[in-house]
């Protein structure tokens, strides 16, 4: 417990951590301030007009769908025959759309929490993932490089305990900060929506969906933190983690993708971590496989395939766990000179 308390103090006292927290607060402050400054509570007239426009747009969608079905049945009036309708009318079926036009879409200068919450949360998750990775890498990297770990091991010559306490403290600290930051962040924008904009349609489904995204985001933050810590431990330096990520992006995500294309490898996206990252965060990510429909020209081939959150999580957790286990195994035997 003493070790964890000491590590927590060491972590919070680090300049880099403080700088990243300041950046987070700054980014949050600027976003909130500009949102607040650019938003106003809609008047009854604005609201009525927006609702009218949304209703009209929904009606238009229904009309197009009905016309498409009429074309399928061969009862489309000749004056509407010039308009384009997709071969499959389900593509324009309003009931199958992800979302229908709502009044908020036609309110100019009005912040609507229900519409903006997800993109705002994506931004926060992206920042926290970056924060976790960099802090995780620099926390152990600087300690290994500066001799701080050696100093500590002279006091507590139990390598696994020391490294475990460091990782545990780091993950706990980053998770706690992420929890607090996301609650404060979303809470502030909810308040802006209430006071200077519109809350929008906040039903159970909205909160469930936002909660799921939030939970997935926090898992990603924890994984990124552990990954930064593990790679920096393996490479004995903060820059090892940064270098590994840069190398991965250039060599695999760009280089290997190109090679796969040239070699006409099927479904190359499923070999990329970024695909699994997207699948985990959104629940399901669809990709187009160029090879699936090679030589098929009648439009009957569907080249899309999907990655879902469960296998994506397995990939991300396995990678992180493997690297973390390797880092611990190496640290246990390594000469600290």
């Amino acid at each position: 417990m003493n070790l964890v308390r000491a590590e927590l103090e060491r972590l919070s006292a680090r300049r880099f951590v403080q700088l990243m927290v300041v950046l987070l607060v700054l980014a949050f402050g600027i976003t909130a301030a500009t949102t607040l400054a650019g938003s106003h509570r809609p008047t009854a007239t604005e609201l009525a007009e927006a609702q009218r426009q949304a209703a009209e747009e929904r009606r238009n969608l229904e009309v197009i769908h009905e016309q498409c079905l009429a074309r399928e049945r061969g009862v489309l009036p000749p004056e509407q025959a010039d308009q384009y309708y997709p071969p499959n009318c389900s593509e324009v079926d309003p009931a199958l759309r992800e979302r229908l036009p709502v009044a908020a879409d036609y309110l100019v200068g009005v912040f609507t929490f229900a519409t903006e919450a997800r993109p705002l949360l994506y931004f926060l998750i992206a920042f926290l993932v970056l924060f976790g990775f960099l802090v995780g890498a620099s926390y152990i990297g600087a300690d290994l490089n500066s001799g701080g770990v050696v100093n500590l091991l002279l006091w507590r010559p139990r390598r696994m305990t020391v490294l475990g306490a460091k990782l545990g403290t780091l993950l706990g600290g980053v998770l706690a900060l992420s929890l607090v930051a996301s609650v404060v962040y979303l809470g502030s924008f909810w308040f802006i929506g209430q006071a200077a904009g519109q809350p929008g349609h906040l039903d159970d489904q909205f909160w469930r969906s936002l909660g799921t995204l939030w939970g997935r985001g926090l898992v990603l933050v924890v994984l990124a933190t552990a990954l930064g810590f593990a790679i920096a431990t393996l490479g004995r330096h903060t820059s090892a983690a940064l270098g590994a990520v840069a190398a991965y992006l250039v060599v695999w995500e760009l280089g290997a993708r190109l090679v796969f294309e040239i070699l006409e490898v099927a479904r190359p996206d499923q070999l990329m971590l970024s695909s699994h990252l997207a699948a985990w965060l959104t629940g399901r990510a669809e990709f187009w496989d160029n090879q699936a429909c090679a030589g098929v020209f009648d439009g009957s081939c569907d080249g899309f395939y999907a990655l879902t959150w469960a296998p994506a999580l397995v990939v991300l957790v396995t990678l992180t766990a493997a690297l973390t286990a390797a880092a611990f195994a190496l640290f246990r035997r390594r000469d600290l000179i």
Binding site: N2, L3, A6, A13, R14, V150, W155
Partner: peptide
């Protein structure tokens, strides 16, 4: 056992007091 091995390095941004306090905490 108290030991120093080859000029040990410390975090430059920590004060001596904090450096020692952290070690004291870690070592009980």
């Amino acid at each position: 056992v108290g030991a120093i091995v080859e000029s040990p390095q410390f975090f430059g941004n920590f004060t001596a007091h904090r450096t020692l306090r952290l070690l004291a905490r870690a070592g009980g």
